[in-house]
Nucleic acid binder design. Sequence first.
DNA 1: TTGACATATTCCTATATTGGAATATAATGC
DNA 2: GCATTATATTCCAATATAGGAATATGTCAA
Lengths: 112, 112
Amino acid sequence: MARAQTTLDSFNAIAEHKRRLVLEKLADGERPVNDLVHALGWPQPQVSKHLGVLKKVGLVNERRVGRQRVYRMNADRLKPVYEWVKSFERFWQHQLDRIKERAERKAKEKSH
Amino acid sequence: MARAQTTLDSFNAIAEHKRRLVLEKLADGERPVNDLVHALGWPQPQVSKHLGVLKKVGLVNERRVGRQRVYRMNADRLKPVYEWVKSFERFWQHQLDRIKERAERKAKEKSH
DNA sequence: TTGACATATTCCTATATTGGAATATAATGC
DNA sequence: GCATTATATTCCAATATAGGAATATGTCAA
């Protein structure tokens, strides 16, 4: 068996750094392909291909306007990733607690 | 060029579903390999290989105890993923706002 | 030392991928 | 219809992968 397809789910789709950059550009609002091409500075076919993967996995939607294709982010599809990573949030929270604790202990020591 | 290596960063490492399952098992605390093998029900070499990827990318640490190797999660390495996905949090927040708004509007209509 | 246990590594195959170059498709305006 | 603009698709190469099977490495215990 090979690695899972990039279009299997959001986890696989966003593994590619460039696709994350595309999504970041689309976070501010929908854009036609050429806009992205200029904003990112990549060859047009490359942008189209990455958009294709994102579309297949549902992370973006496409709307046709004349000869342009306007892409819009569909952030809902990121929710599973968000939820999964969030389930480890407590690790950082604990870390922050420990830092806070130590700071408070030190402050207490100082006041003695 | 081929796809980025799974060991390039956490995004690529956790793209594989099975590796996410491994991390979930390790979330409750460190475990030796055989523990994971039994908990997951996969062939031992497969577990070792996935642990190898996770270790290479820093998502887990390994400690030797007798003939066992105890693996422990290093959640810090998930932080970049957390931060990136979190930057899209507002999308769901807005969605929740809209749902809430609609609910309140309906409640208001009812009270008239 | 030998055997048993715990884990890692190697070899294999099938498969998907990214980027680049070239080309195809589709819509517009004249 | 024709040229132009906007975008997608195809073909190619190199590469990395996951799983399975077999095997190697390392450690303990008698």
